[in-house]
Measured scan of single mutants.
Amino acid sequence: MMAYMNPGPHYSVNALALSGPSVDLMHQAVPYPSAPRKQRRERTTFTRSQLEELEALFAKTQYPDVYAREEVALKINLPESRVQVWFKNRRAKCRQQRQQQKQQQQPPGGQAKARPAKRKAGTSPRPSTDVCPDPLGISDSYSPPLPGPSGSPTTAVATVSIWSPASESPLPEAQRAGLVASGPSLTSAPYAMTYAPASAFCSSPSAYGSPSSYFSGLDPYLSPMVPQLGGPALSPLSGPSVGPSLAQSPTSLSGQSYGAYSPVDSLEFKDPTGTWKFTYNPMDPLDYKDQSAWKFQIL
Rank of each mutant, 00 (worst) to 15 (best):
Y32M: 04
A35T: 03
S238Q: 09
L16K: 00
P125T: 04
A114C: 05
F58M: 13
V85L: 15
T129K: 04
A174N: 05
Q228L: 15
G231P: 05
S257T: 06
T154L: 14
M5D: 00
Y261M: 03
R90D: 14
Y4E: 00
Q291Y: 09
Y191G: 00
P64V: 13
E55I: 10
N14L: 15
P153F: 15
Y63D: 15
Q106S: 02
Y4F: 07
P263Y: 10
T47R: 03
Y32F: 11
R40E: 13
S245C: 07
D65V: 15
S124T: 09
E268W: 14
D134I: 04
G148M: 05
P64G: 13
S262H: 05
D271M: 15
A92P: 15
Y191L: 07
Y261A: 03
F269K: 01
D130N: 05
W86T: 15
P244S: 04
V226R: 09
L171G: 10
Q39N: 07
A68M: 10
L179T: 06
G8P: 03
W163M: 00
Y67P: 04
S199D: 01
P153K: 13
Q111P: 02
Y32H: 07
T47D: 14
L25Q: 01
E168R: 11
S185H: 05
G209A: 10
L218P: 00
I138Q: 07
G151S: 04
A189I: 13
P197V: 14
C94P: 15
Y261T: 02
S141E: 02
G137V: 08
L267A: 00
A156L: 14
R82A: 14
N77E: 11
K295L: 13
V72L: 08
D134C: 12
L222E: 01
T154N: 03
L146T: 05
M193F: 13
E52V: 06
G178A: 05
A35P: 05
P272G: 06
I298K: 00
P224A: 09
P21H: 11
L25F: 07
P135N: 07
I298S: 00
P197Y: 15
Q84W: 12
V72W: 13
T275E: 00
T273F: 10
Q103K: 08
S49E: 10
P107V: 03
S167R: 10
T47I: 11
I76N: 15
S210A: 10
Y221V: 03
Y208N: 02
Q256A: 10
R126N: 03
Y261Q: 02
P165F: 11
Q84V: 08
Y288W: 14
A117Q: 02
C94E: 04
V13S: 05
F58W: 06
A114E: 04
S199Y: 15
S139H: 06
G217P: 11
L218A: 02
P224G: 12
P232S: 01
R41F: 14
S266G: 05
S143W: 10
Y280K: 03
Q84G: 01
L267G: 00
P127K: 12
Q100R: 09
G178T: 11
A68N: 07
Y221I: 07
S216N: 05
R37L: 04
T279I: 14
S213H: 10
P272A: 14
I138T: 03
V13M: 07
Y63A: 12
S212T: 05
S249C: 03
P282V: 14
